[in-house]
C-alpha cells in the first residue's frame, strides 16, 4: 500500500508523452477537440473504476464489454420507444446491476473462478445480442443526444458525471469501512471472514457495482451520438483491464488505488490520438500499446507479492 512506484512510472510515461505532444503536436491541446476526446473516454473511466473494485477483491470480469453492449441497446430501444431519459438511465443501470449480480452470484455464491464464469457470460450475452439484433443500428429520437442540453454543456456534464463517480469511489475506498473491506477481502478472504467481514457479500457487491457502472457508462456513450451500434463495447473489457493493471492495481487483489487507474486510462486512451497527431502510421498502434503495458508492469519487477 505504501509504494507509489507504479503511479510514478505511469505518470512519468504519460508526462513524457504529453511533453512530446506539446513540442511536436501542440494542436493536441486545443480545448474543443481535447474536450471531445475526454468526453469520449468518460464512459471508459466509469467502467474502469468498477473494474478496479472487482480486481481489488481478487476477481476479474471479462463480460463487461458484453454488458455494456446489452445496456446500450436496451437504453437505445427504450429511448426510441419514447421513454424519457430520466427513466432510461435508471433502467440501464439496473439492467447492468442485474447482469453483474448474475456474475457475482456465481462467483461469490458457488465459489466459481471469476475468469471462467465471466468468460461464459461474455460469450452467452454477446451471442444472444447477435441473435436478437443481427447488428442493426438503433436510431434515437431527437432530444436524446446530449440530453437536449447542447453539445458543450452535454460534454461538460459527462465529464462531471465521470469525475463524480471517480471521486466518490476513490474516497469511499480510502475512507469508508466498506472500502477497507474491499481491500481486506482482496488481500485475504479467509482472514477477512475471521475478522467478522462477509467476503461473499463484498464480492457480490463489487460485481453488481461494476455492472451498474457499465450501465451508466452505456448511457453516457449513447447520448453522444444519434445512433446506437450493438457492437459498441466489444473489446472494452481488455481496454479497461489493461488500464486498471497498468495503473498499479495488483491482479492478485488487495493492492492499488483509483488514482493509478485514472493515470493508466489516460495513458492508454491518449496513445491512439497521439499517434495520429505525431503522424505515425496506424499499424504500429497495437504493438506500441502492448509495449507500454509491458513497460508499466516492469516497474513491478522483483516484487514478491505478484509472483505467480
Amino acid at each position: 500500500m505504501k509504494s507509489y512506484a507504479r503511479e510514478l512510472a505511469v505518470a512519468a510515461v504519460l508526462g513524457l508523452l504529453l511533453v512530446v505532444l506539446a513540442v511536436w503536436a501542440p494542436a493536441f491541446f486545443e480545448p474543443a477537440p481535447l474536450r471531445s476526446l475526454l468526453a469520449r473516454e468518460a464512459p471508459t473511466l466509469v467502467v474502469a473504476c468498477g473494474m478496479a473494485l472487482v480486481i481489488l477483491t481478487r476477481q476479474i470480469d471479462i463480460s463487461v464489454g458484453s454488458q455494456f453492449s446489452a445496456c446500450s441497446v436496451a437504453a437505445g430501444l427504450l429511448a426510441a420507444a419514447g421513454w424519457p431519459m430520466g427513466l432510461v438511465l435508471p433502467a440501464a443501470v439496473a439492467l447492468g446491476a442485474v447482469l453483474g449480480a448474475v456474475n457475482g452470484a456465481l462467483v461469490a455464491g458457488l465459489g466459481l473462478p471469476s475468469i471462467v464464469v465471466t468468460l461464459a457470460t461474455m460469450v452467452t450475452l454477446r451471442q444472444g445480442l447477435n441473435l436478437a439484433r443481427q447488428g442493426e443500428f438503433v436510431n434515437l429520437p431527437d432530444g436524446v443526444q446530449w440530453l437536449g442540453l447542447g453539445q458543450s454543456a452535454g460534454q461538460g456534464m459527462l465529464l462531471l458525471v465521470a469525475g463524480a463517480v471517480f471521486v466518490t469511489l476513490a474516497l469511499a475506498l480510502r475512507h469508508l469501512a466498506a472500502g477497507r473491506h474491499v481491500y481486506a477481502v482482496g488481500s485475504d478472504a479467509e482472514a477477512a471472514r475471521l475478522a467478522g467481514l462477509r467476503p461473499r457479500r463484498v464480492t457480490l457487491a463489487a460485481f453488481m457495482l461494476l455492472g451498474a457502472c457499465a450501465g451508466l457508462a452505456a448511457v453516457m456513450n449513447v447520448v453522444q451520438s444519434p445512433q446506437v451500434q450493438p457492437l459498441a463495447g466489444s473489446g472494452l473489457e481488455l481496454k479497461v483491464i489493461a488500464a486498471v493493471v497498468v495503473g498499479g492495481v495488483a491482479i492478485s487483489g488487495g493492492r492499488g488505488r483509483l488514482g493509478g487507474v485514472f493515470l493508466g486510462l489516460l495513458l492508454l486512451a491518449f496513445i491512439s490520438p497521439a499517434l495520429t497527431h505525431l503522424h505515425i502510421e496506424a499499424y504500429w498502434e497495437k504493438a506500441i500499446q502492448g509495449a507500454i503495458i509491458l513497460l508499466a508492469v516492469l516497474a513491478d519487477a522483483g516484487r514478491k507479492e505478484d509472483s505467480p
Partner: peptide
C-alpha cells in the same frame, strides 16, 4: 474496427492533428 464510436474518435483526432 467497424465501430461507429471509434470512427468518431478517430475523426476528431484527425481534424485537430
Amino acid at each position: 474496427d467497424d465501430f461507429k464510436d471509434r470512427a468518431q474518435s478517430e475523426a476528431t483526432a484527425l481534424m485537430s492533428a
